[in-house]
Design a protein around this nucleic acid. Structure first.
Lengths: 196, 196
DNA sequence: TACGTTTTTGAACGTTGTTCACTACCATTG
DNA sequence: CAATGGTAGTGAACAACGTTCAAAAACGTA
C-alpha cells in the first residue's frame, strides 16, 4: 500500500472543487469522474468520498462558486436607469453563461431523479431573481415585481438553456444576446402598457 | 448457448422503441439501459445493437414519435382566432410536456458532447415552430413572423425545460400554464404596440 | 517507546454502454 | 436428402463508472 499522506482538509476541499471545475470546462460533465478528479489533485477516490458525500456534492460546490461569481458580476455593474439595467442584466447573464457553458449545464442538468437541493442552493437562485426584481419594481410598483422578474428570468432561461448545450441552432439562427434583449423589451413593453 | 430466435426486424424495431418509451416513463433516463431494454422485449443487448447503432439512436426514435404526436395534437385543434390559437398552443404544449416530462428530458438533455442530429430531427422542430408562426403572421404581416415565433417558443421553452425536470420550483411558485400564457400575452402585446 | 485513534488507501462490487468470436439457424446448392 | 455457406442472435468480455470498506499507515498522546 502506498504511503498515505495527511492533508489539510480545507486546502484539499478547495483544490478538489477547483480541479472539478477545470475538468468540467475541459471535457464537459462526462469528464468529471471520481478517478479523474482524484488524479488531478494527487489523491485517491476514497479520499474524495471522505470530504464529500458523493460526486453530486462536488458538483454542487462548483455551482455554488458559479452562482457567487454571477452575483458579484451583477453587483459590480454601474448603476443605471431600470430599463438599461435590465438590458445590462440580460447581456451580462448571457455573456457569463456563454463563457461557462459547460459548467452551466451542471446547474440544471444531471441525473437528479429525486435528489434534493441544499437550502443555500435555492436561496442563491432566489437572490439572483431579486436582483432582476429590483429594477422592475422601480418601473412597476403596483403589481408584484417579483412575479414579473420570475417570468423574465424564465424567458431568458429558455434562450440560455439551449445555448448552453449548443443547441440553440435547433430553433433559430438569431444570436443569444439579441434574443435575450428581445425578451427584456417585451417585458418592458408589457409593463409600460399595463400601467397606462 | 441459448437457442437464437429469428425476429421480424420491423416488428422488433417498433417493439424496442415502445419498450424504451415505457422504460423512460416509468424510471426516467437512468432506467433506459441496454440490458433492461433487451429484457423488456425478450432479447439480448447484442441484438439491439444489431438494429440500432447505439442507445442514443433508440432515444432519437422515441423522440421522433413524441414530436410526431405533438404535431398531430396541434393539428387536431379546432381553428380559432390568432390570439386564441396562440394561447391554445401554449396550453397544449405545456400539457403535452407535463404528461411526458420524463420522455421530454431526452429531447434536449443527454450526453451530447459532439453528437450531431439526424436531419429529420431538426426539420421536425422546424415544422413545430412554423405552426407557431402561422397565427403570428395573421397578426403581424410586416415583420418576420418566423423570428417572433422563435422568440415565443424560447420563452415558453424556458418554462417547460424547468418544469420537465421538476425544478420550476427553484425559480417560482407560479404554475407552468399561467407562465406560458403570460409569455404569449407579452408577445401579443408587443405585436399590438409595434403595429400601432 | 508504545498504544489508540484517525485518515488514507486501493482493491472490490455492481453498474453501465459497447464489441465480437462463436454458434445455431435458414436457405441455397449439389 | 445431405452438405454447405451466409446470416444473425448470443452472451461473455472489456473498459469505465460511482461507491464502499477492510486494512494499513501516520498521527497524537501517554
Amino acid at each position: 500500500m502506498a504511503r498515505p499522506r495527511h492533508y489539510d482538509h480545507d486546502e484539499l476541499r478547495t483544490a478538489i472543487i477547483e480541479a472539478a471545475r477545470k475538468l468540467l470546462e475541459e471535457g464537459g460533465p462526462a469528464a468529471l469522474t471520481a478517478r479523474a478528479l482524484a488524479k488531478a489533485v494527487g489523491t485517491t477516490p476514497g479520499t474524495i468520498y471522505n470530504l464529500f458525500s458523493n460526486m453530486n456534492a462536488v458538483l454542487h460546490e462548483v455551482n455554488r462558486r458559479t452562482f457567487t461569481e454571477l452575483a458579484q458580476m451583477i453587483d459590480a455593474a454601474p448603476p443605471a436607469a431600470p430599463r438599461d439595467r435590465l438590458l445590462a442584466l440580460a447581456d451580462g447573464y448571457v455573456d457569463f453563461m456563454l463563457a461557462r457553458r459547460v459548467v452551466w449545464r451542471g446547474l440544471f442538468e444531471g441525473p437528479h431523479q429525486t435528489d434534493t437541493f441544499p437550502g443555500w442552493y435555492t436561496s442563491l437562485i432566489d437572490e439572483l431573481i431579486d436582483r432582476i426584481a429590483a429594477p422592475i419594481a422601480q418601473l412597476q410598483p403596483r403589481a408584484s415585481a417579483r412575479l414579473l422578474a420570475e417570468e423574465l428570468f424564465l424567458s431568458v432561461h429558455g434562450v440560455v438553456a439551449l445555448a448552453a448545450i449548443e443547441r440553440l441552432d435547433l430553433v433559430t439562427t438569431q444570436d443569444p444576446h439579441s434574443l435575450a434583449r428581445s425578451a427584456v423589451e417585451r417585458m418592458l413593453n408589457w409593463i409600460e402598457v399595463d400601467r397606462r
